[in-house]
């Protein structure tokens, strides 16, 4: 425990000495353990709502793909699998650096180490968003954005437009989550820079990490369902 946290044990109402309260303990919690457990449980519960939030979109995907499997294959074939795979790898790397950042906080690593891993996580998040931007631009250029200007040369223009509706809805919602994630990481990095985290108190990094990994998991499903179903499409 770093020196700054040591206090002389004060006496409680009954005159017994008791453990000093951690400076970051909010009044309504009994101890830091209860606080940490409440926060991580809260985040897990929040992630369950996220599962069902994205779940509604996956439901739409399931129904429409079930209705027009060939149309979806044809449409998927037009997506750039190299960019998709690259982005998958980028997100996996960022998940690794995130996990290492949590570990750095857990082990009271130097602030430089913590900031390094958090910064890398943020960086890869931004790379992901950059690649996404390139892909979106490409879709605009080729009139693959649903709406009045949508244009499709293949056999299944209607299902293709639907596929791209879902593509933009799903990856768009995912990208919004990435942007929020990068924002959260910025705050966490700043806190790490101020030497907030050590083995006694690292809940914010841990909780932010849970969110980050979740967004990665969504992509783990989006990538094959959107990019890879047309891999062996023969037109």
């Amino acid at each position: 425990m770093p020196d700054g946290h040591a206090h002389a044990a004060p006496l409680d109402a009954h005159g017994h000495p008791h453990e000093p309260a951690h400076p970051k303990l909010q009044h309504h919690f009994d101890d830091m353990g209860q606080r940490a457990e409440a926060s991580t449980l809260g985040m897990w519960v929040f992630l369950v709502t996220e599962i069902l939030f994205f779940g509604g979109l996956f439901m739409c995907y399931l129904v429409y793909r079930w209705k027009s499997p060939s149309g979806f294959q044809e449409a998927s074939f037009e997506l750039n699998r190299v960019w998709g795979a690259t982005n998958t790898a980028v997100l996996i790397i960022s998940s690794l650096t995130m996990a290492l950042a949590v570990r750095a906080a857990q082990t009271s690593a130097k602030r430089g180490t913590q900031v390094f891993f958090l910064g890398l996580t943020m960086f890869f998040g931004l790379v992901f968003l950059g690649i996404k931007a390139i892909e979106y631009t490409d879709k605009f250029v080729h009139h693959h954005v649903p709406g009045p200007h949508f244009h499709w040369d293949g056999q299944y223009p209607k299902p293709a437009e639907q596929f791209y509706s879902l593509y933009f809805a799903m990856t768009g919602l995912h990208a919004v989550h990435m942007i929020v994630g990068v924002g959260i990481m910025a705050v966490i990095t700043w806190m790490a820079w101020r030497e907030t985290f050590d083995e006694d108190y690292y809940t914010p990094v841990e909780v932010a990490g849970l969110y980050w990994h979740f967004v990665d998991i969504v992509w783990i499903f989006l990538f094959p369902l959107l990019y890879l179903i047309g891999g062996h499409f023969k037109g």
Partner: peptide, 22 residues
């Protein structure tokens, strides 16, 4: 339950606003 209604009305709004076909 609530997240599902959230995404559903969001899709209605997006469909109306951006002409995505959902």
């Amino acid at each position: 339950g609530t997240p599902v209604i959230a995404i559903t009305v969001l899709l209605v709004a997006v469909e109306r606003g951006l002409h995505l076909g959902i």
